[in-house]
């Protein structure tokens, strides 16, 4: 059944690696192997059985679309998280600077920092949730 494995890996070549991709490849290989077994039991030669299973399988445009959609969504979340971290960092730095420069006796920058920190927190949570 090496041929099946090679064919499936070939089909998935262009799709970026991910856990989902790996498990889907394994699933497809398992199912195709079983189909080939069935065809052989029904009296086909191994060569023919493998070829039939491969032809019946069709092209993977649909699968590609599904997998790309999920990876595009992840990319977007990641980008937002990075943006929020940078923006939050800059605002916090500004607050600390103003605080220490103009009113070094009163530490008030903690309060705006507490508020602004929720922004990356929320995005981090969403990104983390999506990773699972």
């Amino acid at each position: 059944m090496k041929k099946i494995r090679e064919h499936v890996h070939g089909l998935f070549k262009e799709i970026p690696d991910s856990e989902i991709k790996k498990s889907m490849e394994e699933e497809i290989i398992q199912n195709l192997d079983e189909k080939v077994q069935d065809l052989i039991e029904a009296g086909k030669k191994e060569e023919d059985a493998i070829n039939k299973a491969i032809v019946d399988f069709g092209d993977i445009e649909d699968i590609k679309k599904e997998l790309e959609q999920s990876s595009a969504a992840k990319q977007k979340l990641k980008l937002r998280l990075i943006f929020s971290l940078w923006a939050c960092g800059l605002i916090v730095a500004l607050c600390i600077f103003i605080n220490l420069y103009f009113t070094p006796d009163i530490i008030w920058f903690i309060f705006p920092v507490f508020v602004i920190i929720w922004w990356p927190f929320i995005l981090f949570y969403r990104w983390y949730e999506n990773r699972l």
Binding site: I28, L32, G58
Partner: peptide, 13 residues
């Protein structure tokens, strides 16, 4: 007859 490739896309979805 469902194309198997389509089937796995549906599972994924």
């Amino acid at each position: 007859k469902i194309k198997e490739a389509t089937l796995y896309a549906v599972f994924q979805r």
